[in-house]
Amino acid sequence: MPHAVRAEGLEREFKGGIRAVAGVDLEVATGEVYGFLGPNGAGKSTTVRMLTTLLRPTGGAAWVAGHDVVREAAAVRAAIGVALQDAAIDPFMTGRELLRLQSVLHGLRRREGQARAVELLERVGLTDAADRRVGTYSGGMRRRLDLAMALVHEPKVMFLDEPTTGLDPTSRFALWEEVRRLNSEAGTTVFLTTQYLEEADQLAARVAIIDDGRIVADGTPAELKAEIGDPTLTVTLERTGDAVAAEAALVGLGRAMPSGVGRVCLRLPEGAAALPEVVRRLDLAGVAAAGLDIAQPTLDDVFMAKTGRRLEGDAEDAVAAGAEAAAPSSP
């Protein structure tokens, strides 16, 4: 089975002629983590609902685990695990009860279900909270339980719709770790939607950017960023007056960019590999640098280039991601 998920011209039109999904083509290889990135209302959830048999397409076709989502819906349901937005769990039931219920729904025998519940609770770190009502769980605990519930039948393909929306950073990292483990240990294909650039960047081997019901770009995060351009080097000077000398020293390494006072910026095609040369030249010219930063283009830059807009509310995340990727050093 070459493709875990495949869609051809997938469309969904709602009453009133609103086309939430307007012809989506995608291919997710078996064993891949695929990130579906886009702002609110871009059509991410509608696409996932069609792929998980919850909504019938009005055009095109899709196959999940080799089965047609409309004609072989039952086979699709048996093969997939689904954790949708707003973890759907009963506050009045305990984590263990919900896991056991879920295993019955997936046709496991009572014994198997019991054992599986114990195993999954342990795995997502909820053993201590297993017999507490879910109403007392934190947001992160609910998401982890939700993930565990989607795993009872060891699905081949896992759909996660905005799994970390609204979570604090610690819970988010814990969930990412779980998704990575699921993919690397069990070889589960993961189809993940997110509006967080960093999440797509961190987790997904391949990313599709969806806007207004259409895929506007897809590829590995590195490929997408490479389309945008080279990394940017920023030299922060100790003495503002050194700007001209610094620019002169770096000529030939890259294209100079407009920069603020006390800084020199240039596009560096070789990226971090050029840093020793930068340091050597600045040293020779007698320029003292207070800081050197290399910023990679972010997926937000990709989104900007494709749609002319920034991903809503993610400006700070993008900056944070850029800062992490930077290689600050000082001679």
Partner: peptide, 16 residues
């Protein structure tokens, strides 16, 4: 409430 909360989706997306 199951429909509002998403439990219904969970059921429909399972082999139930």
């Amino acid at each position: 409430q199951d429909i509002e909360g998403g439990f219904f989706d969970r059921l429909v997306a399972s082999p139930t």
